[in-house]
Design a protein around this nucleic acid. Sequence first.
DNA 1: AAAACTAGGTACAAAACCGTACAAATCTAA
DNA 2: TTAGATTTGTACGGTTTTGTACCTAGTTTT
Lengths: 234, 234
Amino acid sequence: MQTATADTGNRILSRLSRADLHLLMPHLSPVDLPLRKSLEVPNKPIDYVYFIERGFASIVATGSGGDAIEVGLIGCEGVTGLAVIMGANRSPNATYMQLAGNGLRISAANLRSAMEESASLHKILLQYAYVFMVQTAQTALANGRSKVEDRLARWLLMAHDRVAKNDLPLTHEFLGIMLGVRRSGVTVALGVLERKGLIRAARGIITIVNRKALEKLAGSTYGVPESELKRLFS
Amino acid sequence: MQTATADTGNRILSRLSRADLHLLMPHLSPVDLPLRKSLEVPNKPIDYVYFIERGFASIVATGSGGDAIEVGLIGCEGVTGLAVIMGANRSPNATYMQLAGNGLRISAANLRSAMEESASLHKILLQYAYVFMVQTAQTALANGRSKVEDRLARWLLMAHDRVAKNDLPLTHEFLGIMLGVRRSGVTVALGVLERKGLIRAARGIITIVNRKALEKLAGSTYGVPESELKRLFS
DNA sequence: AAAACTAGGTACAAAACCGTACAAATCTAA
DNA sequence: TTAGATTTGTACGGTTTTGTACCTAGTTTT
């Protein structure tokens, strides 16, 4: 089994003190994170916690019925397994990769020991969990008060924040599931954004063309968790 | 200044070990919590953390614009100041009393010291924060996928869980703000519920008549955070 | 190269919801 | 008890979103 070096693309790992990193390193192993790979299954014990380096995951809430909606994104700025970080061992939400990438993972048990050993490690992980909580709250706000077009702009911005390129390999179908709207509703909304020159869409790929204008469109729905992240992880 | 006794209506305090309770008690002071009393102001440092004994508070997310929506309720089952518990000192969300009551409060500074001193105390508070996170995720789900009538049923159930009586003193206006819909939309939806015999509405008061049927109507949108709470705080 | 599959574009009527408005009912205070 | 304020009921046209369907265009498989 390979062991991770200190040289990582994950922004939480890269902010850890040398001591905290040494605490985790022996237990971290690199993993490939292909599209749709499941990181957490609703109501099943969480086995591993993932420090994502490239790509991002969707955290999806599902009701007791089958309907689902995304409540947040986690990429290289964060870590999955927030339930573990907060002392639970599972969550009713699903987590799976939405854009393929890779990362480092640690078993939930090993992470628990490490957090018990180091308060500073626990603290930094908790602060990220707090930022994610803000993200979820803002998602609730957007879902309740914004229209599809604005929510789509918001989602694209959050995705763009988490990838290096301007091309996002996404289908309308999955965007619809994430936003909780019809597939064809996404198609139409994307058409509007494209006609405004904010994006370009090809089969399976959306390209961010004018980010500033997207931010303007998303307006108040974008930026709150992002600035909290900046503030706490300056 | 009065000092709290161990005999409290707050379900978190009542689950603490004797030692943890003794750690907090010297710093807890009883407070009256009138309607609309502000417990947290967006982006201002949090001064006090409130263990609610009666009544409940709304946690409200506000965009950089003025629009707001409720992302969760906290009553005697919980505690406010989740940002503090998670190592931040403020939050972009507002928190204020939605149904008058009372509780015990502790300064954020004193709570921080107590949490540093006792890992078991910190753990129980974090587990509640996790439950609240699930509640927020479910709110995002309901906002995105359910219609006003169902969301209203969900809200009434969550409120009912947090009061002793069947009467909820609420105006349509405020319900509309919480749910992110028109005031008259609430009036109409309440009319539907009343005609179905699930509730009774008088000026400023909504009475829960048939809770079971309300749960059926809310369907999959109600119950997930509630069962997590039960599971973790058996 | 044909067939099968996946993704995207478009349409249309129905439903949900909004903004706005106004009047009736109820409560409060002078 | 009267004036004022708050709360609720109801209406109407307009916008947003939905459910469903069907067709086209790419992509993969055989």
